[in-house]
Write a protein that binds this DNA or RNA. Structure first.
Length: 294
DNA sequence: TTCCAGGGCGGGC
DNA sequence: GCCCGCCATGGA
């Protein structure tokens, strides 16, 4: 991979397995939006960045070489060989072969731990467009104005402190409804106990899930999402409605397996590749509407 | 109008 | 351990 400056933008040359649509629409993130020109603009780490694919190159706008080297290379997981991961999954069965072929440009983003906690609490019993709307409104109301890009204002994700100290009305204003008390409680707990990403570094997935489910509004599925997207626990396998459908369609026809058992089954089946398998399957299932009318 | 969305919680058994 | 009703909101 080479980093080149061109017209004030940064161009990443020779990047494989990187398709913005696949990355930003496979359900892992809520602060990336499609622009009219097909590019995606996102807010991460108090920074606004625009990403597009031009021929074989990844073009990054509104950023600089320092940030690319210090932040975005890591965030986009550029150092990882996703080709190898897809090959291993493809060799397992025809379904994974098809799914990895369909979402061939997916990469799992390394997102901020605490933002994942709050965002996925909001995700419970909610629709993805609504989750995005709520997260953006919450940032507008309780975060900081960090940048204006293409005439649009962008706001940072609210800090732990601002959420912990916010009135409940200020939180419910983001259409977060019955999840608002969960968010307030959890933000307070994170602040009071000074819980940080590094506290999870040496924990197994089960230990991580056990610790995370102590948060209000965090059950098995949300914990797995936080573990996968915010803590780089790649053996996590979040089972949501879509994953349940696609698992039943592909592997567990007419079994009527409970969610905890399906989680255990999948973790054992996919092992260290569980998180990747989950993302390819989720994207495939959701884009194709697998098992929706049953 | 009714159903559903990247579920969790508290209750019951 | 499993199942049930409930939880707001908006889009289809």
């Amino acid at each position: 991979m080479d980093i080149i400056q061109k017209n004030g933008n940064i161009v990443l040359k020779n990047i494989k397995d990187f398709v913005p649509k696949h990355i930003f629409e496979c359900g892992q993130c809520f602060r990336w939006d499609l622009e009219e020109d097909g590019s995606y603009t996102g807010v991460v780490y108090d920074k606004v960045i625009n990403v597009s694919l031009e021929d074989e190159d990844v073009v990054l706008k509104n950023t600089n070489v320092d940030d690319v080297e210090n932040i975005w290379i890591n965030y986009f997981d550029i150092g990882k060989d996703y080709g190898h991961i897809k090959k291993e999954l493809s060799d397992m069965d025809e379904y994974l072969k098809e799914s990895t072929k369909f979402g061939y440009g997916i990469r799992i983003l390394k997102q901020p731990f605490y933002e994942m906690v709050i965002s996925f609490i909001i995700s419970a019993r909610n629709a993805i467009p609504m989750i995005k709307r709520s997260v953006n409104k919450l940032s507008e109301d309780l975060g900081e104005h960090i940048d204006t890009y293409n005439g649009k204002k962008y706001y940072s994700f609210p800090t732990v402190k601002s959420l912990a100290n916010a009135d409940i009305e200020k939180i419910t204003a983001s259409k977060i409804a019955f999840r608002a008390p969960y968010i307030q409680k959890t933000a307070k707990m994170i602040e009071d106990e000074d819980i940080q990403e590094k506290d999870f570094e040496k924990l197994t997935l089960d230990e991580t899930a056990e610790k995370l489910t102590k948060f209000a509004g965090v059950g098995a599925k949300v914990a797995d999402c936080i573990a996968l997207f915010g803590l780089s626990k790649y053996d996590a396998f979040p089972v949501d409605v879509w994953v349940k459908r696609v698992m039943e369609e592909f592997y567990l026809k007419d079994t009527n397996m409970s969610l905890p058992k399906m989680r255990k089954y999948s973790i054992e089946k996919f092992g260290s590749l569980g998180g990747y398998a989950q993302q390819y399957l989720f994207y495939y299932a959701r884009e194709k509407g697998i098992g929706k009318n049953k």
